[in-house]
Design a protein around this nucleic acid. Sequence first.
DNA 1: CTTACATGCAACACGCTTGACGCAACTTAT
DNA 2: ATAAGTTGCGTCAAGCGTGTTGCATGTAAG
Lengths: 195, 195
Amino acid sequence: MTETTANGRPLRADAERTVRTILEVAERVLSEDPAASLAQIAAAAGVARTTVHRRFASREALIDAMAVHAFRQVEEAIDVGRPDTAPPLVALHQITANVIQAKSSWRYTVGQPQLRDPEAVAAHERIFAKCHLLLGRAQQAGLLSPEADLDWTRRVYHALIEQAIQVQASASTDPDALAASVVDTLLNGLGRVRS
Amino acid sequence: MTETTANGRPLRADAERTVRTILEVAERVLSEDPAASLAQIAAAAGVARTTVHRRFASREALIDAMAVHAFRQVEEAIDVGRPDTAPPLVALHQITANVIQAKSSWRYTVGQPQLRDPEAVAAHERIFAKCHLLLGRAQQAGLLSPEADLDWTRRVYHALIEQAIQVQASASTDPDALAASVVDTLLNGLGRVRS
DNA sequence: CTTACATGCAACACGCTTGACGCAACTTAT
DNA sequence: ATAAGTTGCGTCAAGCGTGTTGCATGTAAG
């Protein structure tokens, strides 16, 4: 987890703190204004603009680093839900709630269309695989129809989570209730009376 | 439908053609690169950059005009499905297919977060209202659970359409089949065996 | 045909963003 | 305490996107 410079040596403690601060503040600033300049980000982070350039070679490099950071957190959010050991329905609820929370904190970054950094791509693929695995287990457990297309299912699941995040952004709702809505809608749709 | 200049007089025929071309090409270019410059858009449209500035006072004005154009087309896509007279299930299928097609052609524009132009806002609100009306009719007809929250239902419906558009973008599928998937998923979810 | 409109082209000014540099002051780690 | 690393500040250069103007050449409309 400790970042290293081109030098090979690890960053000093205060420098690593600075890097983290910049990443988090950049997410906040860019989610409000995607065209914000590095100067705005630096100001919001309470550092000089040159410091941002010292830590990130270019604007692209900064956004790439944000992507790596964000996807790692989403992956973590999935892992703590034990997607391959916990009962599928339990894991589904838990993971949904965790991912909603994680993605809410990185809306700009995870919304970026293209991933340039290979590590970000790799993390994204791992997330993708874990999601498929979870849905596969749910299908085998009878939660999902045996005929359900897992690819379409994954897309629908993803879309529902996105909507839940937007709901949370406009009217701060209980994360667990949101997760319940997502899972319930995914499994049962909205056409029948719910339990 | 005929645009007018600040002068009050209608545009000459060739000028109106140019305006339409710029709007459509801008959508295509910006959907591939949201940060594309006006010079890139002008080049792609086969006109001089100054012509773009002549027709649209600023970059913002261009994007606003695109929004108005796009939302009018989406509204049209809804209207031809007769949302307030056709049987709810029929209208739902028809409108879903139409809207998927219309939105596919204006992905960048309809994906814009904030609408500045009052006419675009108005069109958006009309679309919103028509959607609610359709879902209300579907609920009264027994297609949707009486307890279903229409606001959440609209969000889910919207999200499913977005996913369908992405599917269509990656692998060009039959629009009607996509619409069927969307409606079926909305009503029944993915947990039970489908007919 | 004639008038008014539309376009392309070249050029210009302006502001903003990015990226780089050296130096003095400060903080961490050994 | 010493050495290495880190930061803020001022400064500079270069590039790019935006917006404007004037003029000559086309083109639609009466």
